[in-house]
C-alpha cells in the first residue's frame, strides 16, 4: 500500500505522455528537424512549472508529507560525462525515437517489442557499470 501511490503517479505521467504524443518516434524526428513547436512546448512548460515547484520545495514553502524540507543534491562538476554521456544518450533517443521513460509507456500500450529495447538498455547500463573506470568523466 505504501508503494501504491507511486503507481498512481506513474500512471498520470504515462497517460499524459501518451496523449501528448511524446512517446511518438514521429514527434521526436519532427522535433530534431525543428518542424513543430509541440515537443519544445512540452519541455519548456514542463521546465517552467518544474522550476517553480522545485524552488517552492527548496525554500521550504512547501514541505514533504512528513513535514520535512526536501533536500536537493547538487550535481558534481564532472563535465566530460555530461558532454559525452549526453551525446550518446541523445543518439539513442533519436535512433529509436524513444527515451528511458517512454519505453515503459510503450510496453504498457501493447508494443511489447519494447521489452527487447529495455533489455538492450539494461545491457547498456551494465556495460557502463563495468567500463566506467576507463571512461573520461
Amino acid at each position: 500500500m505504501k508503494l501504491f501511490k507511486y503507481i498512481i503517479i506513474g500512471f498520470l505521467f504515462g497517460f499524459g505522455m501518451w496523449k501528448l504524443e511524446a512517446v511518438s518516434t514521429f514527434r521526436i524526428i519532427e522535433m530534431f528537424h525543428f518542424q513543430s513547436f509541440h515537443m519544445y512546448g512540452i519541455i519548456i512548460t514542463g521546465v517552467i512549472t518544474g522550476i517553480i515547484i522545485t524552488q517552492l520545495f527548496k525554500k521550504g514553502k512547501i514541505k514533504a508529507v512528513h513535514g520535512e524540507t526536501v533536500k536537493f543534491n547538487d550535481k558534481s562538476h564532472e563535465w566530460w560525462r555530461y558532454i559525452l554521456g549526453g551525446i550518446i544518450f541523445g543518439m539513442g533517443w533519436a535512433l529509436t525515437g524513444v527515451c528511458s521513460g517512454m519505453m515503459f509507456v510503450l510496453v504498457g500500450s501493447g508494443y511489447t517489442i519494447f521489452i527487447v529495447f529495455i533489455g538492450a538498455a539494461l545491457l547498456g547500463t551494465f556495460a557502463y557499470g563495468v567500463f566506467r573506470k576507463s571512461l573520461p568523466h
Binding site: 519541455i43 514542463g46 521546465v47 518544474g50 550535481k75 560525462r81 555530461y82 559525452l84 554521456g85 549526453g86 551525446i87 550518446i88 544518450f89 541523445g90 543518439m91 539513442g92 533517443w93 535512433l95 529509436t96 525515437g97 524513444v98 527515451c99 528511458s100 521513460g101 519505453m103 517489442i113 519494447f114 527487447v116 529495447f117 529495455i118 533489455g119 538492450a120 538498455a121 539494461l122 545491457l123 547498456g124 547500463t125 551494465f126 556495460a127 557502463y128 557499470g129 566506467r132 571512461l135
Partner: peptide, 25 residues
Amino acid sequence: IIVGGGFLVGFGARYAGGCTSGHAI
C-alpha cells in the same frame, strides 16, 4: 534501431548521470 537504440539510451543515461526526466526536467 531497437537493440542499438536501447543500448545507447541505457549506456548514455548512466554515463551522463540521468535522462530526459532526471536532467532535462
